[in-house]
Amino acid sequence: MKIQKFKSNKFKMFFFLITVVSMLAIFTSLSRIMIPFGFAYILSLMLKPIQKSFYSVELRKKGLSLLMLVGIAFVFSYPIIQGVKTVTEESHKIEYYLPKLEKYLREKYVSIQQEVKQRFNYEIKANPVNSLIEFGQENTKQLVIFLPKIIGSLLEWGIMIPLFLFFILKDERRVRFLFIKIVPNSIVERAYYLYHQFNTKFGDYIFAKAIEALIIGVIITTGLLIIGYPFAFLLGLLAAITNILPYAGPFLGFIPALIVGLVDQNPNTTLGAMIILYLVANIIDLALVFPVLVSKIVNLHPIVVVVSVILGSQFGGIVGMVISIPMAAFFKLLYQEIYLELYGKA
């Protein structure tokens, strides 16, 4: 008995591939839709554990999605408004710090120039400080020019992200079942398994990273407030955001705090305490939070992590860096499946 494989399946496979490629092409060409949809999708994955905990109450999906959106709005609106207010105030204060920073950089540069002249009898002619300041001024100008556009996009996102999020939470299963219908019979089991694994890994990773960022943000902000360091909320927020990036993140989050400490002439600014605080926060992260929350989810070799982050930054900037690790974990899974298909069966 000879088993004929893929009989009448070729058309289905062709139709499926065409559908997937066209969907990807449409999504990538429409960035105004893709970006808020991507954010909503990531948020929906982050909310999945919360959604699951409500299943026992036997709420219908529509009600549950609405309840979650209202709940999020209710729980987070006050802290968000307060946080935005504080961070905005601190950002305004930065305006007064910028001339200080310029003065500090110029003074430092002149002292280094003199030191080099004295010791090595060599005069540094290049002036990187001027070009750095020019670069900063140019970028600030660009930011001011594009500010209305950025605000417009943010407002658009503010409407579109909750809308997409609501429908993803409500109709994800229905869309998934419709999509599964067009997957050819020969690959349906494997495709569904990979889709499920990708969603689980991606969701768990993003959720774990968000918790990790929150922990770091809270530790840094509280610590800076205790030691009376300036811009505690802004620096805490920056530390939380940059912590999402693996390896380089904690260092990037530390640089602004160091600059503030160096520029600030206030004798109360305790630079040493700040450095210890960042060290302690990162040790807690590396020794407790990361191994418990994140590493078990992806289980990748450190070199693979570094390479995937570099590749992610090259292709997708900061967003690429953030999603690079779960993507690498997914490709590892895909590779294992293909390897099993090619070599494992014998």
């Binding site: 088993i3 004929q4 494989k5 009989k7 019979n185 089991e189 494997r190 398994y193 069966k345």
Partner: peptide
């Protein structure tokens, strides 16, 4: 539950493959 249609002689599952259904 997913309803799936198969035509004559189409392989539904193959020996040695990973199974999820």
């Amino acid at each position: 539950i997913h309803k799936r249609s198969f035509s004559l002689d189409e392989v539904i599952i193959e020996e040695g493959d990973s199974g999820f259904g």
